[in-house]
Design a binder for these strands. Structure first.
Length: 312
RNA sequence: CGCGGGGUGGAGCAGUCCGGUAGCUCGCAAGGCUCAUAACCUUGAGGUCGGUGGUUCAAAUCCACCCCCCGCAA
C-alpha cells in the first residue's frame, strides 16, 4: 500500500551509526547521509572520519559534511536528494526551519530519554547521576526548540543498580535503532498520532564539561559512586594523588564508619582502598593513574605506595 | 610536525640523572608453625631489563633509529 520513502540520515557519533546501520537494512532507501566534517582527534591529532561517515561510505552512500548548516550549496544538495523524511540522530547541530520544512514527512529525531525529561545533549549521564530507575528512548518530530517536538513513540528501559553510561548507552542504541524503524513504518501507514510534550514537566540535561568529572570528596559516597557510573564514558571521574591524575572506573559504597576527613585514605591494604567522603566511605575498585594502565585496585596497590592517612 | 609519561622474572612497581655482578610488594613451588587460614616463618624456581645498531674495558642505565602502551588535548 505505502510506497517506499526516500530518507536522508543526519548524525555523527557511534550511537547514531547504530541507527543508520539499521536503516540501511531497508525497506526504505537511504538516499543521502549528512555528518560533521572530519576533525583532528586523538593523540597526534590524526583526522578520523566520524562513525556515521564510515558506515555510510562502506555502503557507498553519498555523504555531505557541511561546515555551515545554512550553506546555500548544502541546502541545494539536500533538496536534490528529495527526501520524503529526514532522520536526525545526534547530529550535533540545531537545524534551521529551512531544513525542518524541506521533507514532506518532516524530520524525525531519536532521543535517549523519556521526554519531556532530560532534554538536551547528555541525557544518559544525567539520568544515572540523578539515580533514576528508568530511562528510555523517544522518537519525535523535530521542531525549532531543542528536543521539544511532539512525541511519536517511546520505550522504557530499566536502569540497573550497577548501570554505567557505557552499558546504558549500548542498550539505548539497540532499542533506539529498533524504535526508529518501527516509528518510520507506522508513520508510513499513518497509525501514529504525535503527542505534544507536557512543557511543565520538562527537565534539562546540559552538555558535560571536563571539570564535571573531578570528585568532590565532601559529597556523599553514594553520590560519588553514581558519578563514577554516569561519567564512565566521558569525562570520567577523577581525583588527584601526589599531583597525579587518578581516574576511578569502579567504586562501591562501604557500609562502615570511620573518623576521617573527606578525601582521606582510611584503608589501603588487602581489604581494598577506602576513601572517606562527606558521608560514608567509598571503596575504589578499579583505577587508573596518569600515564598508567587501568587496573583493579589490588594490582594498583602492589605498585603504588599509598598509605592510610594520605589525601586524595 | 599539538604537549607529555611508560615498556625491568607470572602481576604491579623501584632502579636510569651520577654506567660496574637486578631490587620491592605480590603471585607461584616446597617445607614449617597452626584446630585452621587469604595470617606468620624458611627455602626455592623464574628475567637475553620492548627491538636493532652505536659509544665503552663494562650498558637496564649514555647516543641514534624503530615497534607497542598510556595521560593531556580535541
Amino acid at each position: 500500500m505505502s510506497q517506499s520513502w526516500p530518507i536522508v540520515f543526519m548524525g555523527t557519533p557511534a550511537a547514531a551509526a547504530v541507527s543508520l546501520e539499521r536503516l540501511l537494512e531497508g525497506p526504505d532507501p537511504v538516499v543521502g547521509v549528512v555528518t560533521q566534517p572530519d576533525r583532528p582527534v586523538g593523540r597526534g591529532q590524526k583526522t578520523v572520519p566520524a562513525p556515521v561517515r564510515k558506515i555510510a561510505e562502506s555502503h557507498h552512500k553519498p555523504v555531505l559534511t557541511p561546515d555551515r548548516i545554512r550553506d546555500p550549496d548544502f541546502l541545494e544538495a539536500l533538496k536534490h536528494w528529495a527526501p520524503r523524511l529526514i532522520v536526525v540522530v545526534a547530529y550535533g547541530r540545531i537545524l534551521p526551519r529551512s531544513i525542518l520544512d524541506l521533507p514532506p514527512a518532516g524530520c524525525v529525531n531519536v532521543h535517549y530519554s523519556l521526554l519531556p525529561k532530560y532534554r538536551g545533549a547528555a541525557p544518559v549521564p544525567w539520568a544515572l547521576l540523578n539515580g533514576e530507575e528508568r530511562s528510555g528512548v523517544t522518537t519525535m518530530k523535530l521542531v525549532e526548540k531543542m528536543d521539544a517536538g511532539p512525541i511519536l513513540m517511546q520505550e522504557e528501559v530499566p536502569i540497573a543498580l550497577d548501570e554505567t553510561a557505557a552499558s546504558l548507552e549500548a542498550e539505548l542504541n539497540s532499542v533506539g535503532a529498533r524504535l526508529l524503524s518501527e516509528t518510520i513504518r507506522r508513520l508510513k501507514e499513518g497509525s501514529i498520532v504525535a503527542k505534544p510534550q507536557r512543557e511543565e514537566e520538562a527537565t534539562y540535561a546540559p552538555m558535560l564539561k571536563k571539570v564535571d568529572g573531578q570528585i568532590d570528596w565532601t559529597q556523599s559516597a553514594e553520590i560519588i559512586e553514581r558519578r563514577v557510573r554516569a561519567f564512565h564514558l566521558w569525562p570520567s571521574t577523577y581525583s588527584f594523588w601526589n599531583g597525579q591524575l587518578v581516574k576511578v572506573f569502579k567504586a562501591a559504597v562501604v557500609g562502615a564508619e570511620e573518623e576521617a576527613a573527606a578525601g582521606e585514605v582510611v584503608r589501603a591494604d588487602r581489604g581494598g582502598l577506602w576513601i572517606a567522603t562527606g558521608r560514608g566511605i567509598l571503596s575504589l575498585e578499579e583505577v587508573q593513574l596518569e600515564n598508567r594502565k587501568r587496573l583493579p585496585v589490588a594490582e594498583f596497590l602492589k605498585g603504588a605506595k599509598i598509605e592510610k592517612g594520605e589525601r586524595l
